[in-house]
Simulated assay, not measured.
Amino acid sequence: MSEFAEVLAALRQVRGINPFFALDVGRPDDSWLPGTALLEGPALKDTIDAIATRYNAGEPRVAASLFFLSYTARLLSPLTATNLPIDVRPSNLWWHHDRATGLSVRIDVPQLGPRPVEALAPVVEAVHAVVPVARGLLWGNAMSNIAGALKMVVRAGVLTAEEAEERGNQLMTAPPFEGAGEFIPFPGEVTFLRRSCCLYYRVAAGGKCGDCPLVK
C-alpha cells in the first residue's frame, strides 16, 4: 500500500468516532486560507480577536488559548486514533474560521510527516508572538486534547484503557509534554488531570473542564 493510500485509509477508519476525528483531505474553496497564513500576516490575530468577541473574552490570552485548543483538537484527535505521524505542518494544511461555526482544519496531501510536536511548534510560537500566552499552557491544551482523544478511542473499542494510558504516558516522558499532567487510574476509562488551565472558565459563559487542575 502506498503512503498516500495508507494515510487515507487510516483517516477513514477513525473519522466516525466523533466529528473531531473527521480530518478532511484536499484543497477546499477560496474561503479557506493556507496553513502558512497562521505564521505570517494578520489572519491569526484577526481570528483570535474574532474568538474573543464570540466568547466575550476580555483577556486576549484567553482567546489565544481557545484558538489553540480548537486547532489541536481537530488535528490531534485523528492523529492519536490512527497512531500515525500524519503531516499536519502548516505547509500541508488549510484552515477556515467562521464567527458562527468556529474553526475548521483540513490537510492538503495525505502523507506522513514529522512528529506532531514538530508540526505544532511553529504555531505555538506564532500564537505566543501575537498574544503573550504561556507556551506551557498551549502545550497543556494539546496534551489535554490527546487525553480526550484517547478517552474517545477507548469508548469506541479501538484500545483498552490500559493501552491508551500507556500511549499517553509515553508522550509525557519528554518535552514539551513532560509534566503536562497525569493519568488517574479508573477501571475501563481514561481519566486525565492536567497541570495547567486552558482559561475557559474566564469567558462570560465558561466553566471548568473535566481535567482542569482548578476543580476541587
Rank of each mutant, 00 (worst) to 15 (best):
P19A: 00
P19R: 01
A22E: 12
A22D: 15
L23Q: 07
L23W: 01
D24C: 08
R27T: 09
R27M: 11
D29Q: 09
D30T: 15
S31R: 15
L33C: 13
L33N: 14
G35Q: 09
A37N: 06
E40W: 03
E40S: 07
G41Y: 12
A43L: 09
A43N: 06
L44G: 04
K45S: 14
D49R: 10
D49E: 15
A50N: 01
A50L: 05
I51D: 00
R54I: 09
A57D: 08
A57K: 05
G58A: 06
E59A: 14
P60A: 08
R61E: 10
V62Q: 00
A63E: 02
A63W: 01
A64H: 02
A64K: 02
F68H: 01
A73R: 12
R74E: 03
L76T: 04
L76G: 05
S77E: 03
L79M: 04
A81T: 03
I86Q: 04
P90R: 12
N92S: 04
N92I: 11
N92H: 04
W95V: 01
H96L: 13
D98I: 07
D98F: 11
A100Y: 02
G102E: 04
V105T: 05
V105C: 00
D108Y: 10
P110N: 11
P110L: 05
P110S: 03
Q111V: 15
G113N: 09
G113T: 08
G113Q: 05
R115T: 13
P116E: 11
P116Q: 14
A119C: 11
A121Q: 08
P122H: 02
V123T: 03
V123W: 03
V123R: 04
V124C: 04
E125Y: 10
A126C: 13
A126T: 05
A126R: 02
H128G: 08
H128D: 02
H128Y: 02
H128I: 02
A129L: 10
A129V: 07
V130A: 09
V130Q: 00
V133A: 14
G136W: 13
L138V: 02
L138P: 01
W139N: 07
A142H: 00
A142D: 12
M143Q: 10
N145P: 02
L150M: 00
K151T: 15
K151Q: 14
K151V: 13
K151S: 13
K151L: 14
M152Y: 14
V153N: 11
V154C: 08
G157M: 04
V158Y: 11
V158L: 12
T160H: 07
A161Q: 00
E163C: 01
